[in-house]
């Protein structure tokens, strides 16, 4: 509208005829000043550690002699060659846990968003409640749940399910603890809320009239879900799977407490290299490889799921 309005007031024109439309420089900089705290935060807590880590990964030396940057990129190849099984395992476990989270979390989020009614807040609190205790305690609780002599294992045994899972190599004899199954269970449990919350948010945003419209247009409930509800919840699915997969791939506590030697993930290796072996370059290189791998996978995933504009 302003463009078709009368010219700027006369007095302004007389004092600064050439700069009528110019905003003062100070004013133009305001948005950047507002960005400053965020940028500083990123520099201090993200960029600087990243540079430091990058530097560490190409150093050589020891604690006594000190570490010096020697551009020793071979660390990356050595680390990858040595620990690729743990990398593959991390990605595999995280992917399975993410899939399980989606399978469990979607109905749950759907229920909360559309069916819970006045119980919605109560159910939400139940979903979040585990966060009130520490990650470690929650994981340790699973050792009790899955104990060899516990009811879960007894039930699985009486159904002969453990025979099947043992044959598949995801459990070991008649036990669940210290097997891949236990680690995946722990990961699934610990990261489930990260799946449920974004799913709930995106489901809850769907206009219920769209469901009615689909029904009105001859879509059965199942078709409505497939053609309308699910596509519209894609931003939640993408966000949820990322929020689950990324931390699960880097997790080491579940593998440490619920797994055995054959279930160690890349997080355990990094921890061990950093704290026990004191091989900082290898630890840093492994962290970088993990980061790069996840970044690449996530980028491809977002491209494929076509939700770049929705996320």
């Amino acid at each position: 509208m302003t463009t078709t309005e009368t010219p700027a007031p006369a007095e302004e024109q007389t004092t600064a005829p050439l700069e009528v439309r110019k905003t003062p420089a100070r004013k133009r900089l305001v948005p950047y000043w507002l960005l400053l705290p965020g940028i500083l935060w990123l520099i201090v807590f993200f960029a600087a550690p990243l540079v430091y880590q990058a530097s560490t990964s190409i150093q050589t030396g020891s604690l006594e002699e000190g570490f010096k940057v020697t551009w020793h990129f071979a660390t990356y190849w050595d680390a990858l060659g040595e620990y690729w099984p743990q990398f593959v395992r991390s990605v595999g476990y995280a992917a399975i846990a993410t899939a399980l989270c989606l399978l469990l979390g979607y109905p749950l989020a759907y229920l909360i968003a559309f069916k819970a009614g006045r119980w919605r807040n109560v159910v939400m609190i139940l979903v979040i409640a585990p966060f009130f205790t520490s990650f470690l305690i929650r994981t340790l609780a699973w050792k009790t749940i899955l104990a060899d002599g516990g009811p879960v294992v007894a039930a699985l045994n009486s159904l002969h399910l453990l025979d099947v899972t043992s044959a598949l190599g995801i459990t070991e004899g008649h036990r669940v603890l210290a097997t891949p199954l236990a680690v995946v269970c722990g990961l699934t449990y610990n990261f489930l809320p990260f799946m449920v919350l974004p799913l709930y948010t995106s489901l809850e945003r769907i206009d219920p009239r769209l469901h009615e419209a689909a029904g009105d247009l001859y879509a059965r409930p199942a078709t409505t879900f497939r053609r309308v509800t699910f596509p519209l919840s894609m931003p939640g699915v993408v966000a949820g799977t990322l929020l689950t997969f990324i931390p699960a791939a880097g997790d080491y506590i579940n593998a440490e407490l619920l797994g055995s030697t054959d279930q160690k993930m890349i997080g355990n290796v990094i921890q061990s290299q950093f704290l026990r072996v004191l091989d900082y370059p290898t630890a840093a290189a492994l962290s970088f490889i993990l980061m790069a791998a996840i970044l690449a996978m996530v980028t491809i995933y977002i491209r494929k799921s076509g939700t770049e504009d929705l996320v």
């Binding site: 993200f46 990243l50 990324i246 931390p247 880097g250 997790d251 990094i270 980061m291 996530v298």
Partner: peptide, 8 residues
Amino acid sequence: RRSATNGR
């Protein structure tokens, strides 16, 4: 460590 490495 997780948040530093996960690229979220």
